[in-house]
């Protein structure tokens, strides 16, 4: 199988472990990735929050390159890039004025027919049976909380064909490689995304909520498929640790890293050493010969003292 590949900026920088793990996994699955020539940034959040035309035209440049390169399918592993590319494609299809403007700017005709796929979809396409076949390492000792965030499931008309409120396509992938997942409540709650730098405090609070809920439901690891979610949950956990002394760190892995682990790919090649929150305890747990820990019966929590209706910003 041959596939166009749009890594996007993050995968060349802060999310390089996403890039490397993905390449390793696809090599093992005999999928050739053909990187887009001279691709440029999709504009990410910053384009669509400030300029409509930027948010359509920047991704459009890459769509045109893909067509020129003769690609029919384009893998955009970053959830944000995926969302921007598909949104732009959609907009160009529906809004004729916009299409004409973009064609004018890029001096090229916009054509349809390019299929953009994200990480989850490509695994589904390859087939969960195939993933199962390639499984070499038992990862059943750890329990994963699949975190979809926003852009994998929203907006509903362009995102994954999965349920926006309770998606389970990532769980299905993990189950196929023999992994265990937890049922939790913050699968699609926002991590604060682009506010990471300008409003670190907000991101910190949102991530704390997400991590707490994952841990409460027994997760050993949070699995993501978006570099933004990853940097917020992984890197910003350092801030959380600083501000909440009781916080128990939890590693955050890309879906491709976990799949890679199950295939027995070298940890280093999967980039498991560049996380802010150490992945060592997790890797040790996978390797440990001890039987999987029994699911502890959850002790009912004491009645919540903060029983009054929570109102206002500070509640």
């Amino acid at each position: 199988m041959k596939l166009g590949y749009y890594p996007g900026c993050s995968l060349n920088g802060t999310a390089k472990e996403f890039n490397s793990s993905l390449k390793e996994v696809f090599a093992a699955l005999n999928v050739d990735l053909e990187e887009l020539n001279d691709w440029s940034c999709c504009g990410a959040t910053s384009a669509h929050v400030t300029s409509h035309i930027l948010s359509v035209a920047l991704p459009a440049r890459n769509l045109l390159i893909a067509k020129k390169q003769g690609l029919n399918e384009l893998l955009a592993p970053c959830a944000a890039c995926y969302s921007r590319l598909v949104s732009s494609q959609q907009e160009l299809k529906l809004d004729e004025k916009m299409r004409m403007k973009v064609e004018d700017l890029l001096e090229e005709k916009v054509t349809n027919g390019l299929q953009i796929i994200n990480l989850i979809q490509i695994f589904q396409k390859i087939g969960l049976d195939k993933l199962k076949e390639k499984k070499q390492v038992d990862i059943s000792k750890i329990k994963a909380a699949c975190y979809y965030g926003c852009l994998l499931v929203r907006p509903v008309d362009i995102a994954l064909p999965d349920d926006m409120e309770s998606p389970d396509s990532m769980e299905a992938i993990i189950k196929s490689i023999g992994g265990k997942t937890v049922d939790w409540n913050f699968k699609t709650e926002c991590c604060g995304a682009a506010h990471s730098i300008a409003h670190t405090d907000i991101v910190e609070k949102l991530c704390k909520g997400i991590i707490d809920n994952a841990q409460k439901h027994g997760a050993d690891v949070i699995i993501v498929a978006c570099p933004m979610c990853h940097s917020n949950l992984d890197m910003r956990q350092l801030n959380i640790i600083k501000h909440y002394p009781d916080h128990k760190p939890i590693p955050v892995l890309y879906l491709s890293q976990l799949v890679g682990l199950s295939m027995g790919i070298d940890e280093k090649k999967l980039g498991l050493g560049v996380h802010y929150i150490s992945t060592k305890p997790l890797l040790e747990k996978i390797k440990s010969d001890a039987l999987p820990t029994e699911v502890k019966k959850e002790v009912p929590a004491p009645p919540v003292s903060n029983d009054k209706i929570k109102k206002g910003v500070e509640a």
Partner: peptide, 9 residues
Amino acid sequence: IAGLPVVIE
């Protein structure tokens, strides 16, 4: 009406 979030357990 108050313009405030409400969370009820």
